[in-house]
């Protein structure tokens, strides 16, 4: 297999997919609340990568430069929402930790029946 000059777009897709799967694995298997949170951030980022790559390809295929930009703007909003989510999520963890001295999600079972 010869080495291509520019990066084939599939590689980006595959990388984004792999990162997402790793993130999902972490979010499902870990018990520390903050590690789960980090895994979710990882998943968000893999999707961001996918959006940018996809927007670039579609933009180039249709010859419309705005399409690539729209993808980037979508990612911009994801960034802002992630910041909001992190602020609220971490505040929640602090509040939970204050009451229960743990952030192990398996032990947070007050709402379970």
């Amino acid at each position: 297999m010869s080495i291509p000059v520019s990066v084939p777009i599939q590689w980006y897709f595959l990388l984004a997919g792999a990162l997402f799967v790793i993130g999902a694995l972490g979010a499902l298997s870990r018990r520390n609340g903050i590690t789960i949170f980090l895994s979710i951030e990882l998943m968000l980022n893999s999707v961001n990568l996918l959006i940018v790559a996809y927007a670039r390809v579609v933009g180039e295929r249709t010859g419309d430069l705005l399409t690539a930009l729209n993808g980037q703007i979508l990612v911009l909003f994801v960034l802002a929402v992630a910041a909001a989510e992190a602020a609220v999520g971490l505040a929640l963890f602090i509040a939970i930790f204050r009451g229960r001295r743990t952030i192990d999600v398996n032990r947070l079972n007050l709402m379970r029946w």
Binding site: I9, L14, G17
Partner: peptide, 14 residues
């Protein structure tokens, strides 16, 4: 995801 993503834009070079 692999099945969904692999087929798209096959061999497309930026």
């Amino acid at each position: 995801m692999l099945t969904l993503l692999w087929g798209r834009f096959h061999g497309f070079e930026l």
